[in-house]
Simulated assay, not measured.
Amino acid sequence: MNLSSRHEPARRLGVGILGAGPVTQAIHLPALARLRNILEVRHIMDVDESVAESVAARVGAAASNSLDALLADPRVDIVAICSPHQFHAEQVIAACKAGKKAVLCEKPFAMNAEEAARISAVSAETGVPIVVGAMHTFDPGWLAAEQAWGDFPEQVHTIRSSIVLPPNARFEDFATEIITRPAAAQPDYSDIEVIKDMLRGGIMGLAIHDLPLVRRFTPDFDQIEVLQARHVRPFGYVVSLRTPSRTIELRAAMNDTWKPEWSFEAFSDDEALRIDFTPSYVQAGSAVATFTRGTVTTSFGPYDHNGYEGEWRELAALAAGAKQPPSAKTLIDDLTFALDIAEATAARADADHAAREGASA
């Protein structure tokens, strides 16, 4: 099964990247280097001009500290938005209005449903397709399983996302020489507001990679209830959820583990799917999907590229007009699903904390 050669454009398309932090340096630039036959980094913007210049020098691109300068660069066909979350919506809208061919926005692409609706309207008005960087939905292992599972999603009753990783910095340093990264603060674990923010951050920064997969198996996703929400130190979560027809478990821990593991599982009475993803910063090919129906087990993968490279291939095809853009409704539903879980998780933690405080009073 060759998933790597579909819809490749005839000429190289220019890429401009907003934000030159660790994700750009350790994930996107290595992925784009493997796709230099179809994509070329031509402009890198960062508010710290020295960082922009240093990162741009690695790939022979122009550098600036101005959004307007990047958007005005006629050599840029595709804009990748890798800036802090709060700037995403306005930058996506600006890129669409600048007449670019496609936009990649790191997750989340908006901070609320109102911003998402504005983005959808501008994308429809300008005809500029938008891809959200939930890389697992572009992984060839996931896509191969999706093509083979038939009516399995309708039969599923239990879904589980499990993530065990070392801190991002370890993988970043393995992948490249990071020029700069934000300083880490020591959280106050006794403050419930800190814990709630960390749980929200875990859902919107880590679980969000798998939540579009979860939603694929959750038809009643708009009726979600959080049964348990627990913060795992130093960074992680255990969240149990249910809908009228599904049980969902989200688990993550980032610590000093030596062996990373990232898996997604779904179960019905007679079938089971397990997907083992490679860690985000490891350029080691695709996930491996294992689908079991009765006594028969079928495996898919590994293929020669991961979901990050897959999303760039998708962007190139969209920019070249070789594929239809994703549904705006799908993007908005994925976002609201994640936001609802993040807020319900924080509310559950708050209620449990208040109950403990009341019991000890």
Rank of each mutant, 00 (worst) to 15 (best):
H136V: 09
L273G: 02
F337W: 11
N112K: 03
T137G: 03
Y308N: 07
R200Y: 13
T292Q: 06
K100W: 07
V238H: 12
I130W: 08
D256T: 15
E40T: 15
G236R: 11
L165V: 08
P279E: 03
F87D: 00
T297D: 01
R200V: 15
R233S: 04
L213W: 01
P187V: 11
I224H: 04
G321W: 13
V214E: 04
A322G: 11
I192L: 13
V79D: 03
S64W: 06
A110G: 10
G150H: 09
L315S: 06
R42C: 08
L250P: 10
E115P: 09
Y237H: 14
I203Y: 00
D222R: 14
S123K: 13
G307D: 05
G127F: 15
E53D: 02
Q25F: 03
A344T: 14
A361V: 15
T180S: 15
H88G: 02
D151Q: 04
V122R: 09
F277Y: 12
P30H: 13
D276W: 08
V288E: 02
A116W: 09
G60W: 05
R11D: 07
A316C: 06
Y237S: 08
A359W: 12
I224P: 08
R215G: 09
W262P: 02
L315R: 07
V51E: 00
W149C: 00
A354F: 15
I224N: 02
I81P: 07
D151W: 04
P279S: 03
L199S: 00
L13F: 14
A134D: 08
A289D: 03
M204V: 14
G205Y: 09
I81N: 01
A20S: 05
V282P: 02
G294L: 02
Y308P: 05
D68E: 09
F217Y: 10
L71P: 10
V23C: 10
S83V: 15
I27R: 05
D270R: 14
F152C: 00
S263L: 14
